[in-house]
Amino acid sequence: MPFDVTVYTTTLITLIVIMDPPGQIPLFLSLVGQRSPEYRRRAAWQAPLVSLLVISVFAIGGKAILNYLHIGIPALQGAGGLLLLLVALQLLTGLGNAGNPKASDDVNVALVPLGTPLLAGPGAIAAVIVQVSSVDGEAAGYLAIAAAIISVHIVVMLVLRYSTVLIRVLGVGGITLLAKIAGLLLAAIAVQLIASSIMGFIAEGV
């Protein structure tokens, strides 16, 4: 069975641009910078793993799932935007971080918002669904898409894992400042997702 290099390259570049591994560094550090080294190392592989599982599920049956639930891409964008906006407000105000049990922190960071919707967001999900639909049932194309999905998540894991080295340089004050900046950037991303969702609904005539 031949390997479709063109599909692999296209899918890999598309996902890297959408998921933006270097751009996740300030958000990752702002969320885990004041946690223990063990927590940071665990989050660095848990978040890409969650994203890998989510994107794989949508790659396999995403179109069928969305059709069955009558959910469109604009709805995914709106939901992701609202979720990111809540996280951004927590980063900007400092609320929601203190007094939470350890297990809750694990869920909030590794699953939400890092794993989804920051990594496995509406853009990445939509891109994978489109790529899978474009290969017309060819096994070589499916193999290339699977390899690209795995490759991009390995890149993300390595970027997040070694970004924790910056914590020793930034210190507590630097991480706090980074959290405020990341919160502002995250709020802008959230607003853009919500705006794209609205425009998508308008385009669909909803």
Rank of each mutant, 00 (worst) to 15 (best):
201 F>N: 10
101 P>E: 14
125 I>K: 00
24 Q>H: 03
192 Q>P: 06
98 A>P: 09
47 A>E: 07
64 A>F: 10
30 S>C: 10
199 M>V: 04
143 L>R: 09
175 I>P: 00
112 V>L: 01
45 W>F: 13
88 A>N: 01
85 L>Y: 02
59 A>D: 08
80 G>I: 06
17 V>S: 08
113 P>C: 12
73 I>D: 11
96 G>H: 07
94 G>L: 11
193 L>H: 01
108 N>Q: 11
18 I>R: 05
16 I>V: 07
42 R>P: 15
154 I>S: 03
103 A>T: 15
152 V>M: 12
112 V>T: 10
67 N>G: 14
10 T>L: 13
78 G>I: 06
206 V>P: 00
1 M>W: 04
97 N>L: 09
138 E>S: 08
74 P>I: 15
106 D>R: 14
75 A>V: 06
35 R>A: 03
44 A>H: 15
186 L>Q: 05
23 G>P: 15
27 L>W: 11
195 A>T: 08
147 A>F: 00
163 S>W: 07
74 P>A: 12
150 I>S: 01
115 G>T: 01
129 I>S: 04
70 H>N: 07
35 R>T: 04
91 L>F: 02
178 L>S: 04
34 Q>D: 11
172 V>N: 03
7 V>Q: 05
101 P>Y: 13
54 V>H: 00
72 G>M: 08
176 T>A: 07
50 V>Y: 03
180 K>G: 02
79 A>P: 13
27 L>S: 10
83 L>I: 14
205 G>W: 06
177 L>K: 10
79 A>C: 05
181 I>Y: 00
